[in-house]
Nucleic acid binder design. Structure first.
Length: 612
DNA sequence: TACCGGGATGAGATAAATTC
DNA sequence: GAATTTATCTCATCCCGGTA
C-alpha cells in the first residue's frame, strides 16, 4: 500500500537524521490511513512516536560536528606538524601543505544549503536555529552547505553595543551577545541594531581568509601569520586554526571522539588577573570525589566577573599552599574557564578536610584525590548519581533542585523515575507547572528512541563513560550484558587489565536495575546504527541518482550522499560505482549502467546500504 | 616510558519558564 | 514584577589507564 510505504519511509528517514516531511504532514497522512483502513497494522504496531523535527528543535547531525584540538605553545604545534608529517610519509606523500585561518570566537553552526541552520550542540545533536535567519542573521551564500561560525562584526559591536546597557545589563562579550541573539524569541533593541547594520552573520569556514604553506615555513613565522590573519579579520578571534589540506592525509589520520587529528587550533594565552582566596568550598561529586573550589575576591577578566575557580585536587591545594588569604593569579584560557595560573603568596594555613563536608564520614585518599566512601548514603552522591542519570537520558526539566525533591521524596532506584506521575511529583513538593513538564518529559523519554550507549553510561559505572559504553555496545546488545565478563571486555580494544574486571563486576551487580530501566525505554541499538566518520558508508564511491524518490527530494539525497563520503556524478561513466534508481528513471542512465560494471540499486536497497 | 584518549569536574552569560 | 530554576551556548584541566 502506497500510503503505508510513504509513512514507513518518512519514519525511517527521520530516524536516519534526514526528515522528509513536517510533523503536521506526517500526522495528516496517519489520519488519512486511519480513515481509509482503521485496522491497518501500521496504526497499531508498538512503534515509538515519531520525534518531531521542530518540537524541542533537536537536530541529529548526519556527520558529527567535532571540536578542535588546541595548542598554546610552539612545542605543541611542532608536535602536531610532526604527527601529520609522519603519517604523510607513511602513506607516501612528500610535500604537505597546511592551511591557516583565523579562529572565530562565536557559536559554531552547520547550514544545510536549504534554509536550515543548527548549532553544534554535543556534536551529535544540536538545536535547530533556522529561525535566526528569519530574525535577520546574515547568510552570504544561501545555497552553500557549510560548517561555520555565528559571529558579530567586531568594529560594529565595539562602536555601537559594547558597554551599553540593555535590560539593565551592560553588554560585554560579542559571543555572549550572539548567544543571546540566537536564544531570544523576540529581538530586543540591541539585537535589532545588529540586524539593521547586517552585523550578525553566519560565516562559513571555507570563506575565511587563509595562509597556505608547508610546516617549517609556518612554524618559522607562526606569530607573523597569526597576526596577519587576525588583523585582516573583522570578527573577534581567539587564535588560528591550522589543518592539513590533503584529503588522503585527513583520511589516514581520522578523528577522536572529540576532534579531527589533522587539525589544531593555535591559541594565545588569555588575560590574567590577581585576586585573593576568600574561602574554599569542598564539593562532593557523584563519584565521591571531593573537589576544592576557590571562592575568590571577584575580578573582571575578559568580559566576565570571576567569583569561583577550581583547584582540581586536594594534592594541588597542599602543594601550592592554597588557603584563605592566599594571593593568586588567574587566567581565562580560551576566554572561558578561569584557571589558577600561579600562587603569588601562599596562605598561612593550608587545610584539607578529613571528613566528608556532606555526610561527615572519614575521607579516604585516592591518588591525588580525596574520596568520600559514603556512596548513596552520602546525599551529595545520591543527588549527583540521579542527576547524571537524568542528564545522560536527556530527561528535560530535571535540574539540581528538582533532583533534590525526587531524592528527598523517596526515589531510590533509577527505574522508579519512570513510574512517577504528575501527582507523585506534586506530592514531593514540586509545583504544578514544573511537575507537569517533568511528567511529560518522562513520558517522552519512554516513547522516543534513545541510543543504547546513553542508557548504559547513565548508570555511572566507573571506567564506563559514554565513549567506552559505545565501544562495548558495538560488540553486544544491551540485552546481552549478562554475558559480559572480564574476558569478554579485555578482548575489546581500549579495555585493559584494570578496567575490565571492575566494569564486568559492576555490570553484573547492576544488571537487575539495568534491565528494569531498559524495560521502560525505546532503545536504538549501536549495532544497528550508522557508522562513525572514520568509516563513511559511501567513502570513495561515485554515485549517480536517477528518477524521483519517495524518501526525499533528489537534491537532498545527493547532498546526503556527499556527506556520507560519496562523489555524486551527473551521468554514468566507467568510474561510477552505483546507480540509484528512483521512480521513472532515465532510460539512458540505466542502459549505460547495465553495459558497465555499475551496481544498480533501488531506493530501498540504497537506504539499507547507507544505514549499514 | 611517552603519548593519547576517556572520564570527571569545573566557570560565566543569557534567555525562557515558572513560582512567589 | 522580582526571584528561582533550568537549559544552552562557549570551553579547559586534571588524572589515570591503555597502548605503542
Amino acid at each position: 500500500m502506497e500510503l503505508v510505504k510513504t509513512l514507513t519511509n518518512a519514519n525511517d528517514a527521520y530516524r536516519a537524521g534526514t526528515p522528509v516531511m513536517s510533523d503536521a504532514e506526517y500526522d495528516a497522512l496517519v489520519e488519512e490511513l486511519r480513515a481509509t483502513d482503521p485496522d491497518h497494522p501500521f496504526l497499531h504496531q508498538v512503534e515509538p512516536e515519531p520525534e518531531s523535527l521542530f518540537q524541542g528543535s533537536k537536530v541529529r547531525h548526519l556527520t558529527p560536528m567535532l571540536s578542535t584540538d588546541k595548542a598554546y605553545a610552539i612545542s605543541e604545534l611542532a608536535a602536531f606538524f610532526k604527527r601529520v608529517l609522519d603519517v604523510a610519509t607513511s602513506i607516501g606523500i612528500g610535500k604537505v601543505l597546511f592551511r591557516a585561518t583565523p579562529k572565530l570566537d562565536g557559536l559554531s553552526g552547520r547550514y544545510d544549503g536549504q534554509g536550515h541552520l543548527s548549532t553544534r550542540g554535543n556534536g551529535l545533536e544540536g538545536q535547530d536555529i533556522s529561525n535566526a535567519l528569519q530574525k535577520g542573521l546574515c547568510l552570504d551564500n544561501p545555497d552553500l552547505t557549510a560548517d561555520g561560525e555565528i559571529v558579530i562584526d567586531q568594529p560594529f559591536f565595539e562602536e555601537n553595543l559594547q558597554g551599553r546597557i540593555f535590560n539593565g545589563r551592560a553588554l560585554t562579550h560579542p559571543r555572549n551577545f550572539m548567544v543571546g541573539f540566537i536564544g531570544a524569541d523576540d529581538l530586543g533593541e540591541h539585537h535589532r541594531l545588529a540586524v539593521e547594520a547586517k552585523a550578525a552573520r553566519f560565516v562559513p569556514y571555507v570563506a575565511l581568509g587563509d595562509v597556505q604553506a608547508e610546516a617549517d615555513i609556518m612554524l618559522d613565522d607562526i606569530e607573523g601569520i597569526s597576526r596577519r590573519l587576525r588583523d585582516n579579520c573583522q570578527y573577534l578571534t581567539d587564535g588560528i586554526v591550522i589543518e592539513a589540506m590533503d584529503p588522503r592525509i585527513r583520511e589516514a589520520m581520522g578523528a577522536t571522539n572529540h576532534h579531527h587529528r589533522w587539525q589544531i587550533a593555535f591559541k594565545t594565552k588569555g588575560e590574567t588577573a590577581e585576586t585573593m582566596v576568600r574561602s574554599i568550598t569542598w564539593q562532593v561529586g557523584r563519584t565521591g570525589r571531593v573537589t576544592p573550589v576557590l571562592e575568590i575576591e571577584p575580578v573582571e577578566l575578559s568580559g566576565a566577573t570571576i567569583r569561583r575557580v577550581t583547584a582540581h585536587t586536594a594534592a594541588i591545594v597542599q602543594a601550592k599552599g592554597i588557603g584563605v588569604g592566599a594571593v593568586i593569579k588567574i587566567i581565562r584560557s580560551g576566554e572561558v574557564i578561569p584557571k589558577v595560573e600561579t600562587v603569588l603568596q601562599p596562605a598561612d594555613v593550608v587545610e584539607v578536610p578529613t571528613q566528608c563536608p556532606c555526610c561527615n564520614i572519614a575521607l579516604e585518599v585516592d591518588g591525588e584525590y580525596l574520596l568520600c566512601p559514603g556512596g548513596i548514603e552520602c546525599m551529595s552522591q545520591s543527588l549527583g548519581i540521579l542527576e547524571h542519570f537524568c542528564q545522560m537520558l536527556e530527561i528535560d526539566g530535571a535540574g539540581p533542585s528538582i533532583i533534590s525533591n525526587l531524592v528527598h521524596g523517596g526515589v531510590e532506584t533509577f527505574s522508579q523515575v519512570f513510574d512517577l506521575t504528575t501527582n507523585d511529583l506534586e506530592n514531593m513538593g514540586i509545583s504544578s507547572g514544573v511537575a507537569k513538564n517533568l511528567s511529560v518529559a518522562i513520558q517522552a523519554r519512554k516513547n522516543q528512541h534513545i541510543d543504547d550507549w546513553r542508557v548504559l553510561a547513565a548508570f555511572g559505572i566507573r571506567h564506563l563513560g559514554r565513549g567506552d559504553a559505545k565501544k562495548l555496545l558495538a560488540k553486544t546488545r544491551i540485552g546481552g550484558l549478562n554475558f559480559v565478563t572480564e574476558e569478554f571486555l579485555s578482548a575489546i580494544d581500549g579495555f585493559g587489565p584494570i578496567t575490565s574486571p571492575s566494569i564486568a563486576a559492576d555490570i553484573q551487580r547492576l544488571l537487575p536495575e539495568i534491565n528494569a530501566v531498559v524495560s521502560h525505554l525505546t532503545i536504538r541499538h549501536s549495532m544497528d546504527a550508522a557508522p562513525s566518520t572514520s568509516s563513511l558508508p559511501l567513502k570513495g564511491k561515485r554515485i549517480v541518482f536517477t528518477g524521483t524518490f519517495a524518501t526525499a527530494d533528489r537534491k537532498v539525497l545527493e547532498k546526503q550522499a556527499e556527506t556520507l563520503g560519496a562523489q555524486v556524478q551527473s551521468g554514468v561513466n566507467a568510474k561510477t560505482d552505483f546507480l540509484i534508481m528512483g521512480d521513472k528513471p532515465g532510460s539512458k542512465k540505466v542502459s549505460a549502467a547495465q553495459a558497465l560494471p555499475v551496481t544498480v540499486l533501488d531506493e530501498a536497497r540504497y537506504v539499507n546500504l547507507i544505514r549499514q
